[in-house]
């Protein structure tokens, strides 16, 4: 039994080591509040991150998989969500006359993108396409740590590094040339809850918001997981005791 468990564990570790070995130089880890078995989102932080997204990121980036109704999770009232949605116009129709028309966005609408299509986004951004941010923290190795490193990674290029016009140097970005200008600085936003808006604070908050956009189920997943694991632990212990009892007359 012990030998079996040890060899299973060893095999498991080897399997687990594969993706870890494949990773490149590790990014500095940030102490995100949702990490760990008991980890949950900080809703005040998500609210601040939403504010950063709406005031800064959303000028260029879309968030097509998230609906306005979803931010009710942060504690907004229905009326507040309606007001937030109604700030943007969406095309609807056709109406009875057969015409398309513009109307204010509703809570059931997804976040309205800043550009009508990819081509328009490229024209407005010097040929570069600002990616949709809905799944950004899941779609890059390193996840939220990468997003944090990227948003805080703008520096002057090292000597001998020729940076093309309209490009910026970023330590975290693969290839180090990025089309996005440094998006945030100290006091780029004024937080409604009075939190001091340092650059680091802003980046942390918006990364938390983007992580929620990518994994809105995380809080439920963690709390359900805890119950499931506790149940399984007790069940397996009982099954083991029963196994010992049933096999007692054989050994």
């Amino acid at each position: 039994m012990r030998k079996f468990l040890l060899s299973t564990l060893a095999a498991g570790l080897m399997v687990a080591a594969f993706p870890a070995l494949a990773e490149e130089a590790a990014l500095p880890h940030q102490p995100w509040p949702w990490l760990g078995v008991f980890g949950q989102y900080d809703k005040a932080q998500l609210k601040r991150g939403l504010q950063v997204f709406r005031e800064v990121c959303s000028n260029c980036h879309s968030l097509k998989l998230v609906a306005y109704r979803n931010i009710g999770y942060f504690g907004f009232t229905d009326d507040e969500i309606k007001d937030i949605a109604a700030e943007k116009q969406v095309q609807d129709g056709p109406n009875d006359q057969g015409d398309m028309f513009m109307r204010p966005a509703r809570p059931s609408d997804r976040f309205v993108p800043p550009f009508p299509n990819d081509q328009a986004a490229r024209v407005a951004n010097n040929g570069a396409l600002p990616p949709d941010l809905s799944l950004m923290t899941k779609a890059r190795p390193g996840g939220p740590d990468y997003v944090f490193a990227l948003l805080t990674g703008f520096t002057d290029p090292p000597k001998n590094f020729t940076l093309p016009d309209g490009m910026y140097y970023n330590e975290a970005f693969p290839g180090h040339q990025i089309s996005m200008p440094p998006p945030v600085a100290d006091d780029a936003v004024t937080y409604a809850d009075g939190t001091k808006a340092t650059k680091e604070q802003i980046v942390k908050d918006v990364t938390a918001f983007l992580n929620w956009s990518a994994e809105p189920e995380l809080d439920v997943r963690h709390s359900l997981g805890l119950k499931v694991m506790l149940f399984l632990f007790v069940l397996t212990a009982l099954l083991y005791a029963l196994k010992r009892k049933i096999w007692a007359d054989v050994h």
């Binding site: 997943r221 499931v228 099954l239 083991y240």
Partner: peptide
């Protein structure tokens, strides 16, 4: 019973990843 006990162990690995590192 021996298989059920083994299932409990497997589910702990499997569901551990499902809930905490999917």
């Amino acid at each position: 019973i021996k298989d059920l006990f083994g299932l409990g162990i497997l589910l702990m690995f499997y569901l551990g990843f499902v809930f905490y590192n999917p």
